[in-house]
């Protein structure tokens, strides 16, 4: 727990609708009541496929409550854009980190954990653990 502050979650996808839908799914599965702040940053500002550093920075600021921001990403440019923004140092709020996790399952685990008051390390661990869940 970090004095009532919740970790913010940012979902970065190559596609706007994918990011929005996964955010809805994760919030829906995080049980009733209020969840930790979740923001989607998918596609380009014009609505096309791709990644926008501006949308990511805006989403991260919108969910930053001082307890850290966990960024989950899907493909190619989403991964590279977040990595290069973190390397820059001033484009994302303090305590932001890229979480190595499967996008959908990791997002659900991250939102559930953050909503329960888990700190950034717990959120990251829960999201990464989603890789362990085998389907066969």
């Amino acid at each position: 727990m970090s004095d009532g502050k919740q970790v913010g979650i940012v979902l970065v996808s190559h596609s706007g609708p994918v990011a929005e839908s996964v955010a809805e799914l994760a919030k829906g599965l995080a049980a009733g009541g209020a969840t930790a702040p979740v923001a989607a940053a998918g596609g380009t500002p014009a609505g096309g496929l791709g990644t926008s550093a501006e949308l990511i920075a805006e989403a991260a600021r919108s969910v930053d409550g001082g307890a850290g921001v966990a960024l989950l990403v899907d493909l190619g440019s989403a991964v590279l854009t977040v990595k290069s923004m973190l390397a820059e140092g001033d484009e994302l709020p303090d305590g932001s980190r890229l979480v190595d996790a499967p996008f959908v399952e990791g997002a659900v685990a991250a939102v559930v954990t953050a909503s329960a008051g888990g700190d950034i390390a717990a959120v990251e661990a829960a999201a990464s653990e989603a890789y362990e869940y085998r389907k066969l």
Binding site: T44, G48, G50, T51, S52, A53, E54, G76, S77, L80, T81, K83, S84, M85, A87, E88
Partner: peptide
């Protein structure tokens, strides 16, 4: 380049 390209080449050329 990082903020406007929109594909993987943005962060790569930007970096």
């Amino acid at each position: 380049l990082i903020s406007t390209v929109g594909g993987a080449s943005g962060p790569l050329y930007g970096t």
